[in-house]
Write a protein that binds this DNA or RNA. Structure first.
Lengths: 119, 119, 119, 119
DNA sequence: GTGGTCTAGACCACA
DNA sequence: GTGGTCTAGACCACT
């Protein structure tokens, strides 16, 4: 994972984890990697890893059993909700940005239809 | 203007100024507000204002005549170029984000067609 | 300040600050000590100081202006609310504790009437 | 039993057991549940259960006969003493807490007189 | 081994 | 100067 310098690492990792939950790579109720494992996986410090889970817990994406581990929330609706939230935010940012630049809906749709994925 | 806490203020202001250039609210060759005025307008510190013009100068969006003021570049093509760059970046971010979430082009176009501007 | 080993230091400091707000030693809207100052005052690490303000911000006891400082919330009602919350918690803990031990209300009132402050 | 996350579980259980001794639910000289049973009753780990008896032994609330079990101390005075100690600590914590918040004895007595048990 | 807390020391962006 | 983030390394309580 390459970290963008504009956004704090811990937020980038949270976003990555949320993405994996939406993509089904992480299942509801699943045990997440331990702090120490997460630190290794993402090449970050253990404290940063701890902070990531702390913030995710506040957002109710996961919960913690002391001495046992951190677990993804069981609620399946949460996953759908996260997906929609993330999509909404992307859409809103994109549309207001494009409209600020003077593009109309039709232009935008046209550009998307024309969009090629990068390699 | 409301500042998003995640992105440095000076970048947010630069983006806003670029937007105004694209929208024609700022014309090629036009004199920009002084550091002090900019600081007042955007409710930022004067140092931040100075930095904004410094960065924009580096990007060749404007130039400074000492003792006279800061001026927008005269080149009209530049404006078109900025517009396209910003649009491209918006598009790329949006599409990769949505595709990461599992949306296909058709879903995306559908959602945009359905998009209502906020009041 | 003497730290009790059973409760995390940052929670003890938060409690102390809340107490000072209730006692009027800290006023609504007042600027709080900087992270670095707080660290010195309470003989804690700067990171711990930062965490204290972060948690207090989540609880909406204060808010932060980056590069400027951390400020107590302006809302005066908040102070009264904190006082009542803290008193309620003390009362609840005390009463359930005493009643668990078999004391009745009258015994308890009698003991309080009899209570002498320590030197 | 609901465990408060701020205090170590073993301390919470010890408090609970002391409470039961004071309430007469546990009699002097009585045999206490085995480590395993205690672990099941309180939904804790067996190691934690062992630690609980170890600590209680140190405090001379009980003693262990190897191969037979753990027994509550026979001394009846001990029970009265525990009750008074616990009450004193509750009282002291409560009173200093309330006085720190600015309440006077009369306010406090009034609030207690007004106190309704929760269902 | 797990999460939680704490320290020391550093660097960055912002005012 | 301010707050925010990050690392390295340590200790503790609990399973």
């Amino acid at each position: 994972m390459n970290y963008n310098s504009e956004m704090p690492i811990y937020l980038q990792v949270i976003q990555d984890i949320k993405k994996k939950m939406v993509q089904g790579k992480i299942q509801p109720g699943e045990k997440l990697p331990s702090n120490r494992e997460l630190a290794v996986i993402y090449k970050i410090n253990q404290n940063t890893a701890a902070r990531i889970y702390r913030e995710m817990e506040i957002a109710e994406y996961c919960y913690t059993k002391r001495g046992i581990g951190t677990f993804v929330v069981e609620d399946e609706n949460m996953f759908e909700q996260i997906k929609e939230e993330m999509a909404e935010e992307l859409l809103r940012n994109f549309m207001t940005g494009m409209q600020d630049l003077g593009y109309k809906k039709d232009d935008i749709i046209f550009q998307i239809a024309d969009y090629k994925e990068e390699e």
